[in-house]
Design a protein around this nucleic acid. Structure first.
Lengths: 221, 221
DNA sequence: GACGATAACTTACCGCAGTTAACTTAGCGA
DNA sequence: TCGCTAAGTTAACTGCGGTAAGTTATCGTC
């Protein structure tokens, strides 16, 4: 919004032209530089083509040898950041045998992920639909596997009799997803609201969501 | 993102300079034109200072006689769009005497509002926190009253014995808010996801949320 | 070991964006 | 009628995403 000197780092300078057949090197360096800029500034707008090029030590048009446009580049950066998304959720769920506890830990891991990479999360899941739609492949890659895993996890909880037996696993998954996305998204955007302890809030809300699906208290609770 | 001719309408042309003391006229015309652009294009980026100025029939710098910068102008537009937000939720809740039903209708009205004004909703509740924070006054004006009303509504439901008695009204309100925001936000951003019938989905999810707060089935259910 | 094809860039430029400074014009009171 | 000043305009700045055309350096080949 506000103009002004956006990139100050005079470029690491050192970069020399890649050898023949190694043009893809720049591709990766661009991705890394853009990722670093996005994380450090926490501001999508600060990640300009020129800033990225400068950080890599190359001129702006060179970016377009490897990415068709800035949008695609940004989504590619987010794709990298989401690479471990599903794995993180699966890993969190795998830390317990209780299918209900597993769902809770999945929710907590989801929120943690979003809050650790707020700009990537915003770009992927909180953008204009016209923009997000233009990169359905990337967004689906980030979300579909995790969503299917969530559906399966809900199914397991239903099968185990710790959720109401009439819960449709897909609807239950949408319910949990929208719930945990809701709090993650609000925490990202309305950081100034008096949320109190974020982790505790996420835990309590996750538990309330599971209650909505008829969560049965298990022995150790 | 993609450059190109952003505003085609050659301006209604007709506008003539305001009389002395009536400079505020332009202020309102700018707001209205910006609002119209935002709604018609459904694209925040299409609402450029030049496009607004052109629509009003004035030159770009004139905008700055009435708004310090584009951000403030955009939030002022959203403020206008949110003017009826709380009223809409209160009106929806007032259509029933059942405090539980009232909460459901409140949730449905919330989602309906967000889906009817997606860009305003996105700017207010789904933006970068740094940006949203710069306009806390506007965002708080839009949200605080409605939130307090929600807290009171939860309290009434608890008092009526249709929600679990140990539900903290503030936490319950945050739970409902994040839940309905979650689905609203996802419907806005991930329009391509196979949600099925949106209204029905919102209703079912709202009901599930209330179940999470221990909603007791009332007679007519 | 010169040579030329071509991969890997750079230079120069376009139009649009938000914003500012300086200038002009029109209305009103004295 | 004069001059103050509110209500604008003109011209310009910098930075942005993106393109077209030119350059340079590396490589296989003769």
């Amino acid at each position: 919004m506000t103009p002004g000197p956006a990139y100050c780092a005079p470029g690491s300078g050192a970069r020399s032209r890649a050898r023949r057949g190694e043009g893809e090197l720049l591709h990766d360096q661009i991705l890394l530089a853009a990722e670093r800029l996005l994380i450090e500034t926490g501001d999508e707008d600060a990640v300009s083509i020129r800033a990225i090029a400068d950080a890599v030590g190359v001129t702006a048009p060179s970016i377009y040898l490897h990415f068709p446009d800035k949008e695609t580049l940004l989504f590619a950066v987010c794709d990298r950041q989401f690479a471990m998304f599903d794995e993180a959720l699966e890993a969190a769920a795998a830390t317990t045998d209780d299918p209900l506890e597993a769902l809770e830990r999945r929710c907590e891991a989801y929120a943690r992920f979003g809050l650790e990479r707020p700009e990537a999360y915003r770009i992927m899941f909180m953008g204009r639909s016209t923009l997000v739609n233009r990169h359905t492949d990337t967004v689906e890659k980030a979300g579909t596997t995790a969503f299917n895993h969530l559906v399966a996890a809900v199914q397991r909880a239903v099968d185990a009799g710790v959720l109401r037996s009439d819960v449709d696993p897909v609807e239950g998954a949408i319910f949990l997803w929208s719930g945990v996305h809701g709090i993650t998204s609000l925490l990202i955007s309305l950081a100034a609201f008096p949320w109190g302890d974020r982790d505790a809030l996420v835990r309590r809300l996750s538990r309330l969501h599971l209650d909505g699906l008829g969560a049965t208290a298990t022995a150790e609770r």
